[in-house]
Amino acid sequence: MRVLAAMSGGVDSAVAAARAAEAGHEVTGIHLALSRNPASYRSGARGCCTIEDSNDARRAADVIGIPFYVWDLSDRFHEDVVEDFMDEYAAGRTPNPCLRCNEKIKFAAVLDRALGLGFDAVATGHYAQLRTGADGLIEMHRAVDDGKDQSYVLGVLDQDQLAHSLFPLGDSRKEDVRREAAARGLLVADKPDSHDICFVADGDNAGWLREKLGEKAPNHGGDIVDEASGDVLGRHEGTYGFTIGQRKGLRIGRPAPDGKPRFVLDIEPVSGTVTVGPRERLAVDRLAGIRPRWCGTVPGRLEGTVQLRAHGEEHRAVVTTDGDEVAIELLDPAYGIAPGQAAVIYDGTRVVGSATIASTQRVPADA
């Protein structure tokens, strides 16, 4: 096959490209230039959008012996990922930009261009496994390495995208990938993994949002209110600085009557009100999902599990679908779940699909 290997400049994508080439595929490496100004994104080894990362990817391609190109997708990335991130926070929701990047950039814009150029598949360094099911459809399963499994952020991929994807690392553990990289002479063998959000230069999400939204946000400033008493405990500069379940950085000063910490329970972007209360009030047992993305056959009713955060725990759940609406009953309550997050649905290790959480229903206080 003719394979386009997306090379971020990290160890995982480099080894994935090397394995694809070793398997006999005709591999071409590409690095995605996602920043209009590379200096404004992550520096050093903390991200995947810098000039250093591009150079690391090029050197890895040279060692592997494959052609290498840089594709500028910065405008598309800014529109589909960065602006979406800002819009979601301004609306009081908590998005995951990595899912949006996979959905809109790596497995849409890149894959579409690759197929148009005559490539058969795109290979990445994601930790997930692909198998052909009994019905002939391509199934995506969790990776062998539970600690590195990335099937959650790939839960937005549909059947056509999976049919043109390769995940060469799905059957490997991270320590083995690093050893293999060193044995292959890849200089990125010991390069640290990227963390946090690649386009937030210093990892301070709230500060970045404050700088980008600031006075332009419709919800600039508001009250922090105690749910139980209704008392105003303080003021804030914008709801975009908060997410459901947040405990630190509330700056409300006055302790709760029982001395326990308060958490963000609700965010109202129109009035600017942030409601806080005890941790037990964060428990939710029902979720309403919208904009579902199915990896294969659409389930009518499924007793399986859902994952609500990247590398988060699984929750037993009953999932029912009705057109573009997904109802999720959590048999194991979850805490601190916010609208905008993704609920990725599993049947065992198989990824069934995902939905964006539109609303949650909290466990009654007297339950």
Rank of each mutant, 00 (worst) to 15 (best):
R235D: 13
G241Y: 02
H195K: 14
S194Y: 04
F242E: 06
K191M: 11
P261C: 06
P218G: 15
R210Y: 03
G241D: 10
P255F: 14
R254P: 04
P192C: 13
T239R: 09
K216G: 05
Q246T: 00
G222R: 07
D258T: 12
R235I: 07
H195W: 03
L233F: 09
N219K: 03
I224A: 01
I224Y: 00
N205E: 15
E227N: 12
G222Q: 11
R262M: 11
D231L: 13
Q246F: 04
F242W: 08
I197C: 13
P218Q: 13
E237R: 01
F242V: 11
S229I: 06
G238W: 11
D223R: 15
D223K: 13
L233I: 11
V225T: 12
H220E: 09
D196E: 06
F199M: 10
H195Y: 07
D266L: 11
D196I: 00
D196F: 06
W208A: 00
P255S: 13
G253Y: 06
D190R: 11
P218W: 15
I252P: 01
V200Q: 02
A256Y: 01
G203E: 09
F242D: 09
W208L: 03
I197Q: 01
I197M: 01
R247L: 00
C198F: 03
L265K: 10
R262I: 00
N205Q: 14
N205F: 00
E215M: 09
C198G: 00
D258A: 08
N219M: 08
G245A: 00
A189L: 02
G222D: 03
D258C: 05
I252N: 07
K216A: 15
G207K: 00
L209P: 07
K216Q: 13
V188H: 06
T239N: 04
D193R: 12
D196P: 01
D202I: 00
A206C: 03
W208E: 10
R251P: 04
D204L: 02
G245C: 02
R254Y: 04
E237I: 09
W208M: 03
K260L: 13
N219G: 10
L265M: 10
D204E: 07
H236A: 08
S194W: 13
D226L: 11
L250G: 11
F242I: 09
R235N: 10
H236Q: 01
T239G: 03
G207C: 02
G207D: 12
R235V: 05
E237F: 06
H236S: 07
P261I: 04
H220L: 10
G249N: 02
R235S: 14
V264H: 10
P255T: 04
D196T: 03
K260C: 07
R247G: 06
F263H: 15
F199G: 04
H236D: 08
L209H: 05
D266F: 08
L213N: 05
G222N: 09
F199L: 06
A217L: 07
D226A: 12
E227V: 13
G207A: 04
E215N: 13
A217K: 03
R235A: 13
G234D: 07
